[in-house]
């Protein structure tokens, strides 16, 4: 009986000690990890979309709460005007969710660029959505307020060969981002202005 109690006590103490330590450490590193994730996962796509911006878009970011979720927006300054905003969207791909960054010009509602951040598509086929600049380039200049579709569905985007599902996932993500954009545009424009220098 005494051995039983000892076992329970030792395990309980050990577990709570370990739990406490890890919780404290997690709290301590949370902010840094968030910054690192921004920098290394979303960072490359954001910087690519906002190429030539005079500010650091990763630093100039703000959050808007929509319903339950909070979305982060990254601002790009061109010619001293905070007119381009990049934010996250996601679509269903062939192997899972495709995470994307979508940039939009607030002045004319045109897409400034898109970039895939996370995906689980087939390497060499669907994964090209992230690496092939030709595919991403097609989105530039399209109206974000209109539905974006692949050519087979009557749209303007050339689907990547062999990766129709991925291509449609990307266009769906962009379309979704467009619907969302229409809803919050006034809010966006106002917030982005505060970053103008």
């Amino acid at each position: 009986m005494r051995e039983m109690i000892k076992m329970v006590v030792v395990l309980t103490v050990l577990c709570s000690f370990s739990g406490g330590l890890l919780a404290a450490l997690r709290d301590g590193t949370k902010e840094r990890i968030e910054v690192q994730q921004l920098e290394f996962i979303k960072g490359p796509a954001i910087r690519k979309i906002l190429e030539g911006a005079s500010n650091d878009p990763i630093k100039d970011r703000f959050k808007i709460k929509i319903g339950e979720t909070e979305k982060t927006f990254f601002v790009g300054l061109f010619d001293g005007k905070a007119n381009t905003v990049v934010y996250e969207a996601s679509g269903k791909g062939f192997g899972g969710d495709i995470g994307m960054m979508i940039g939009v010009n607030l002045a004319d509602d045109k897409i400034a660029g898109v970039g895939v951040t996370t995906h689980s598509e087939t390497p060499g086929i669907g994964a090209k959505a992230q690496t092939d600049p030709k595919f991403a380039k097609q989105f530039k200049g399209l109206m974000l307020t209109e539905e974006v579709k692949v050519k087979a569905d009557g749209g303007k985007i050339d689907a990547m060969s062999g990766a129709t599902v991925t291509s449609k996932g990307v266009t769906a993500a962009v379309t979704e981002a467009g619907k969302f954009y229409k809803e919050i545009k006034p809010q966006l424009a106002e917030k982005a202005k505060s970053f103008q220098k």
Binding site: V10, L11, L14, S18, L22, L25, T29, I33, Q36, Q37
Partner: peptide, 22 residues
């Protein structure tokens, strides 16, 4: 007990790596 001890330190390493050498 060993697993708890080891797992704790592994998570410590993982968190530190995420924070400093992403």
């Amino acid at each position: 007990c060993f697993i708890i001890v080891i797992a704790t330190f592994v998570i410590v390493v993982e968190l530190l790596m995420q924070a400093y050498t992403y």
